[in-house]
């Protein structure tokens, strides 16, 4: 066996024999994936239900909006009672030309939305009743939807985060623990170049990350969660690999400065956790305030996230590779160079 193979195989054994590492590599991110996946599964798909009484163009118009589910009642009193009891947010009754609208004030946002819809429908029906062509024509059409179903951004987000954590911790903890236990010194006394040790660690980290990606995506595409990959998913691979290298370099840097595993764990968390929250791992970044979106641009995780999401679920073309790949390559080079400069074989 070559030195490279034997080191890599030792690293793989060290990895899978450690239950805590296995947990934080696979189970922990998977817990987030499952919880968020189930929690947000139906978000955005359910319609608001309102009560309706009677019949006429307004009721038909409300039905045609497609935004509401209509629940029919025989009498106005019965429907109003439901609103009063808090079972329905609003009711609309049409009796000939009389249109009655009653709504609950408890949820003001919903009340506002419903009032807007009902007012709009009534105005439209009024205008149509005049028989004239409307002067102002609203040109409305669907655009390609970039705000995704929750599972479509949860999966790539959790995947990037999980892989980043693996790379940072794998690099930092191996470095710190091997230096502390003098394994690095022992290796240095063998005729093995440092690059062999480094490349074995990188290859093992990439291997683990690929298994993680397969597991997370495998769970995401289960019918329960309903993740759908787009045709250009394979373009995410270079972003994925560069992202691993960038976080590996960060881990090497953390490992160079920390003397103990405890310090390295803390430092790695300080680096990765804020990044995860600000880079769209747990919620879509385009819903965040604009300052946060600007701030998040300095994080490699943001670019890894965006890059992977663009191809995995948004179906972007190869031109979308440029920005994330350039940014991540920059991180690899800059952080990697610094890490190599401050690297120490042993504590002094």
């Amino acid at each position: 066996m070559t030195a490279f193979k034997s080191l890599a195989s030792a690293m793989v054994k060290i990895f899978y024999r450690d239950k805590a590492t296995l947990f934080f590599t696979f189970v922990f991110p998977l817990m987030f994936l499952v919880v968020f996946g189930l929690l947000f599964r139906d978000a955005g798909t359910s319609k608001t239900e309102i009560g309706v009484v009677g019949d006429g163009p307004v009721i038909v118009g409300l039905e045609q909006t497609g935004a509401l589910d209509l629940k029919r009642f025989d009498s106005v009193d019965e429907a109003v009672q439901q609103v009063r009891d808090g079972d329905l947010p609003a009711m609309v009754a049409q009796d000939g030309d009389d249109v009655t609208y009653r709504f609950a004030q408890s949820d003001q946002t919903q009340a506002g939305v419903l009032s807007g819809i009902v007012t709009g429908v009534v105005s439209h029906v009024n205008q149509a009743a005049t028989g004239e062509e409307p002067r102002y024509v609203l040109n409305a059409a669907n655009v390609e939807d970039s705000s995704l179903k929750p599972i479509q951004y949860i999966t790539p987000g959790i995947m990037s985060w999980g892989v980043a954590v693996t790379a940072v911790f794998g690099a930092a903890l191996t470095l710190v623990s091997w230096r502390k236990k003098q394994v690095l010194r022992r290796i240095r006394l063998a005729p093995v170049p440092a690059t062999t040790v480094l490349s074995a660690r990188v290859v093992v980290t990439v291997g683990v990350a690929i298994v993680q990606a397969l597991v997370f995506i495998g769970v995401g595409v289960l019918p329960l969660f309903g993740l759908r990959l787009t045709g250009t998913w394979w373009l995410a691979i270079p972003v994925f690999l560069l992202g691993i290298l960038a976080f590996f370099a960060i881990g090497m840097l953390v490992g160079a400065f920390c003397k103990t595993e405890e310090a390295a764990t803390g430092a790695a968390n300080i680096v990765v956790l804020p990044m995860a929250f600000l880079s769209g791992t747990f919620f879509p970044i385009d819903q965040a305030p604009s300052w946060m979106q600007s701030v998040s641009n300095v994080f490699p995780l943001r670019h890894m996230n965006d890059g992977i999401m663009d191809f995995l679920v948004r179906g972007q073309g190869p031109s979308a590779l440029v920005v994330p790949c350039l940014v991540l390559t920059g991180f690899v080079l800059v952080v990697g160079t610094i890490a190599a400069k401050v690297f120490q074989w042993e504590d002094d």
């Binding site: 066996m1 070559t2 030195a3 193979k5 034997s6 080191l7 195989s9 030792a10 054994k13 060290i14 024999r17 450690d18 623990s177 236990k181 003098q182 394994v183 010194r185 022992r186 290796i187 063998a190 005729p191 093995v192």
Partner: peptide, 24 residues
């Protein structure tokens, strides 16, 4: 070495085999 520099989680034979490979 004064401290016992071993790869964590590996058996005695695996340690020796790993070092054997490092020295070819």
């Amino acid at each position: 070495l004064q401290a016992t520099a071993f790869f964590e989680k590996l058996t005695a034979r695996e340690q020796l085999r790993t070092f054997a490979a490092l020295y070819r």
